[in-house]
Amino acid sequence: MNVRTFRVIVRGEFTGLTHDQRERLRAEADRHDLLLAGYSDTGDLSYDETLRPFTVRCQVVQPADRPDQDAVDHGLLVASTLLDERGLAYQRLRASATCLEDIKIRRPKRT
């Protein structure tokens, strides 16, 4: 069975954070730096000290016969689940997906 692997990036904004949530997020900020973000099945949350925009990165593997939009929808579900489990309110979720099998690598020509 052929599969396609997508890297999905979900962007959004925190909203209505309580004082305790802000303190907890700031205390954990160094572990959620965008430069440390990876792609996992359960999602990887990253944000900066402003505590407004955030990014969730996830990897979605699905059968090749399913539409690409299914990967985007799954990524949105992963992000909302991750944020809901942490009790974090959010708004304006939007996602984009890139299929790893569609990426062309241009290798330099040897001389």
Rank of each mutant, 00 (worst) to 15 (best):
M1A: 13
N2Y: 09
T5M: 10
R7K: 14
V8R: 02
V8T: 03
I9L: 12
R11E: 15
R11T: 15
R11Q: 15
G12H: 02
G12C: 00
E13Y: 15
E13I: 04
F14S: 01
T15H: 06
T15M: 14
G16I: 00
G16A: 08
L17S: 05
T18K: 06
H19P: 01
D20N: 13
Q21A: 05
Q21M: 01
Q21H: 04
E23C: 05
E23F: 01
R24D: 08
R24A: 15
L25F: 01
L25G: 04
L25K: 01
A27P: 04
E28M: 13
A29V: 15
A29H: 12
A29E: 15
A29G: 02
D30E: 14
H32M: 09
H32C: 11
H32Q: 06
L35H: 13
L35F: 12
L36V: 00
S40V: 09
G43I: 07
G43N: 07
D44W: 09
S46E: 03
S46F: 05
Y47Q: 06
Y47L: 08
Y47W: 02
Y47V: 07
D48M: 07
E49H: 09
T50D: 11
L51G: 04
R52H: 11
P53G: 01
P53W: 02
F54D: 00
F54L: 03
V56K: 07
V56Y: 05
V56Q: 06
R57F: 00
C58K: 04
Q59A: 11
Q59I: 14
Q59H: 01
V60F: 11
V60I: 15
V61C: 10
V61W: 02
A64L: 07
D65F: 14
D65E: 13
R66T: 10
P67I: 10
P67A: 13
D68Q: 15
Q69C: 01
Q69N: 08
Q69I: 14
D70T: 13
D70P: 01
A71E: 04
D73C: 04
G75V: 03
G75L: 03
L76T: 00
L76R: 09
L77Y: 07
L77A: 15
S80A: 12
S80H: 08
S80V: 01
T81P: 00
T81K: 10
L82R: 08
L83C: 06
L83E: 06
L83N: 09
D84M: 09
R86H: 14
L88N: 02
A89S: 15
Y90N: 07
Q91G: 08
Q91D: 11
R92Q: 14
R92P: 00
R94C: 08
A95P: 02
S96C: 04
S96F: 06
A97G: 12
A97S: 15
A97N: 06
A97Q: 03
T98A: 12
C99F: 05
L100K: 04
L100R: 09
E101I: 05
D102T: 08
D102P: 02
D102M: 02
D102I: 03
D102W: 09
I105N: 04
I105W: 05
I105A: 05
R106S: 11
R107V: 13
P108K: 11
R110W: 08
T111S: 11
T111F: 08
